[in-house]
Write a protein that binds this DNA or RNA. Structure first.
Length: 567
RNA sequence: AGGGGCGUCGCCAAGUGGUAAGGCAGCAGGUUUUGAUCCUGCCAUCCGUAGGUUCGAGUCCUUCCGCCCCUGCCA
């Protein structure tokens, strides 16, 4: 992890990035010595895969700890065994590590604290602050009141401490059926804050738990477990999203009435929304379950595992989270910002290569049939330290079909009949004729090289108009390339009364067979990133790539200011 | 008997009573063996609205408008 502390900015001339509101709060607490050490936590429920919204929370929590010399725990909020499992636990750990963060000590589980939580529930009963309620779910809803009407007290609210203790113990022993009763905090049924209307703190769930097995058949609610877990871990700043703001009075109520070892404080920030995407777990699950995508890690998914498979880098995601900021106002971030971050990181770090996606054969009539020249190409135009590679040059080549036209206007900077073009890292060539099949399709270009143009402009002064990529027709690797577009055509698939499934882009994936990659790509590894010059950034697909076939994913295209203005 | 939040450029976002940062997008140029990168310039007389306080208001007060969250034995 980097260790630039916000406070120790020695370079006065350097323009400081303004601190967001949580950084300001933490800095103030540190300056005033409120805490010995800052402690945060990232507390996902292991009931699904992490997505880009979680990345924001991860960067925030681990980032704050890092900036102020504190610690950040990874805690699985596993109070609802019916929805959780070990697969999710493992994927979440993998995603957090991949993003580049290291949690403090061992992974924690709220279930590690079930014994303590149970004890505290008993203490609440003993203080007359909790009771066992026999109301069923429907009755409970009725008694709760509405947003504009007060609720009314449960008829079981005045049971004696002894009776409550006995009943709660019976609950724990499994003597009641699920839903038969629950343990509730005794607060205020007429509170304008519905979370304070005698909330349930323990419910019966005769479910196997992925961590505690069959030890328990009663489980604490989120509200009862979260703050106390924070306190147990000595969390100083418990950061969550805006929708939990109404829970804060309850969070504080438990902390105030229980002998907890520390006083954590909850702060809320706005969750991340991105256009042309969905981030609700329910919808992502639906996309997977109904096979609209190829699993949770489909390269088009906004999940961390999907973005990883797509070729997005941890640095790009971290940069993105940094750029979008942290505030309390709801907003929708333009996916273009994310795409910029990915391009920016890949441009700086991805070695270049050449790959022809839709091949068109070119025969160089003045080049010897059996000659093979070994040309040298730089792996990066601006970073010499990334070295060179060699590419074989032969009489027959492949260029991109769209890089040739029989005739074109002046703005077209590629190969045109009778005109010249530079072959990237090689010679300038001039097109002489186009060979067509019976249907009139161009199937081959006859051209000739301009001698002496390796690394030099033509001696006759007639420069090439543009540069195109190419690959030897006899020495290349056949491969499959998958091109991706946004998964949704609507910028707000979630909004209004729309069914987000109706907004799915039918052309979000295009699979190209028989693409021709340069030889050096044979040694590519799944973790590698490449820029296929003039095409975009690519990586091997971790799922379909195999020994028998190379499969590349296009992470993202190059920015293309030309495509917009119709030639 | 409702409660809690939020409104600054197309998007994100600084601003903490002293005269509207920055990024993305966009536009116009320059460099370039990637129509990429890089570089230069332009891009809010105005801060949801209407009043008020003040020498001075995006910042303080009031009005109204708009948007988000809350009535799971989910988190």
């Amino acid at each position: 992890m980097t260790d630039h502390h916000v406070s120790s900015d020695s370079n006065a001339t350097e323009t400081k990035k303004p601190l967001h509101f949580l950084q300001q709060i933490v800095r103030k607490d540190v300056e005033q010595g409120v805490h010995q050490k800052v402690a945060t936590r990232f507390p996902p429920e292991p009931n699904g895969y992490l997505h880009v919204g979680h990345a924001k929370s991860i960067c925030l929590n681990f980032g704050l700890a890092d900036e102020f010399g504190g610690t950040c725990n990874l805690r699985f909020d596993d109070t609802n065994p019916e929805k959780e499992n070990e697969e999710f636990v493992n994927s979440i750990m993998q995603d957090v590590e991949w993003l580049g963060f290291k949690w403090n000590g061992n992974v924690r589980y709220t279930s590690d604290y079930f014994d303590q939580l149970h004890q505290w529930a008993i203490q609440l009963i003993e203080q007359g602050l909790a009771f066992v309620c026999d109301l069923n779910a429907d009755q409970m809803r009725e008694y709760r009141g509405t947003l504009i009407e007060a609720g009314k007290n449960s008829p079981f609210r005045d049971r004696s401490v002894a009776e409550n203790l006995a009943l709660f113990e019976k609950m724990r022993l499994g003597e009641f059926a699920e839903g038969a009763c629950s343990l509730r905090a005794k607060i205020d049924m007429s509170s304008p804050n519905i979370n304070l209307r005698d909330p349930i703190i323990y419910r019966i769930k005769k479910a196997h738990h992925h961590q505690t097995g069959d030890k328990w058949c009663i489980y604490p609610s989120y509200d009862f477990a979260h703050g106390q877990s924070d306190a147990i871990e000595g969390i100083t700043h418990s950061i969550c999203t805006l929708e939990f703001e109404d829970h804060k009075p309850l969070y504080d109520w438990f902390i105030q009435h229980l002998p907890v070892p520390a006083i954590p404080r909850q702060y809320e920030f706005a969750r991340l929304n991105i256009n042309y995407s969905v981030t609700s777990k329910r919808k992502l699950k639906q996309l997977v379950d109904e096979n609209h995508v190829d699993g949770w890690n489909d390269p088009r998914m906004p999940t961390i595992s999907g973005m990883r498979r797509r070729g997005y880098t941890p640095a790009a995601l971290r940069d993105f989270c940094e750029r979008i900021g942290v505030t309390r106002s709801d907003g929708i971030v333009d996916v273009g910002v994310l795409e910029f971050c990915v391009r920016d990181d890949l441009d700086k770090n991805a070695p270049r290569a050449m790959c022809v996606l839709k091949p068109l054969k070119v025969t160089l009539t003045n080049y010897p049939t059996d000659k093979v020249e070994t040309l040298i190409a730089h792996n990066h135009p601006n970073r010499e330290e990334l070295g060179d590679r060699t590419v074989p040059f032969t009489q027959t080549l492949f260029i991109e079909q769209e890089d040739f036209r029989e005739e074109a206007n002046k703005k077209y900077k590629r190969l045109v009949l009778g005109k010249r073009v530079r072959l990237r890292n090689a010679y300038v060539i001039e097109a002489d004729s186009a060979v067509k099949d019976e249907q009139g399709n161009i199937i081959e270009i006859m051209a000739h090289i301009i001698e002496g143009t390796l690394g030099k402009d033509p001696e006759d002064g007639v420069k090439a108009k543009g540069v195109i990529h190419w690959v030897s027709a006899t020495q290349n690797i056949n491969c499959e390339v998958r091109l991706y577009e946004r998964l949704f055509t609507d910028e707000a698939p979630d909004a209004g009364g729309k069914n987000f499934l109706d907004c799915i882009n039918p052309n979000s994936m295009e699979i190209l067979q028989n693409c021709k990659a340069e030889l050096s790509l044979a040694s590519a590894q799944v973790a590698d990133h490449f820029q296929f010059e003039r095409q975009g950034y690519f990586c091997l697909d971790s799922k379909y790539n195999g020994a028998d076939k190379l499969v590349f994913n296009r992470t993202i295209s190059l920015k293309d200011s030309f495509a917009k203005n119709d030639d």
